[in-house]
Amino acid sequence: MADTALAPDAQVEHDPHATSLGVSHEKLGMWVFLGSDCLLFGGLISVYLLNKGRIGPDDIGPEDVFDIPFTSVSSFVLLLSSLTVVLSITALQRGDIRRTKIWLLTTAFLGAVFVGGQVYEFTAFYREGLGYTTNLFGSSFFTLTGFHGVHVSFGIILLMSMYIRAARGKLGPAQSEKLEIVGLYWHFVDVVWIVIFTIVYLFPQ
């Protein structure tokens, strides 16, 4: 009797497509990861909000260093990359490998432009006297935006790995879920930036 009851579970274990939830395990795993990442960024944003005002009267604060027009352009670039990654997924689902590769490369390029902009911004802040240990604002700002930059960089690596798979003929419509999962990660990086851009840069200081 017990053996009979266990049989379906054994089937789940051996058949990668069988799932008791009716959804892909890989995709569910990515959503669970994204949920946990929300908590990480939520914590970092809270710490930033607490620390940004805890500076001395002569210390460098947000209003001394932020360049909103420049960061706005970066935000538009990252927003555009969310569109290009979704276009790569739809192209793959249609079986259009050539366009998939083009949109993947475009997305990776836009991500690289965003990271490059962040490196430029960090360098400019440093030259203006705001280092990682200058004050609490600097520490929390660099930690928050730096973590986001690391996420974008990792996303670029994922996108390029998908590009290489496509170039080697190992990514077709049947494997579109793999690209969809990478796309989920990329969109998550975008939505986190939507929150960071508003709270860190645009909220009144």
Binding site: A18, T19, T90, Q93
Partner: peptide
Amino acid sequence: TAHPVEAEDHHEH
């Protein structure tokens, strides 16, 4: 759990 089903693969395109 005794009724595992195939993962959904029918997206609304």
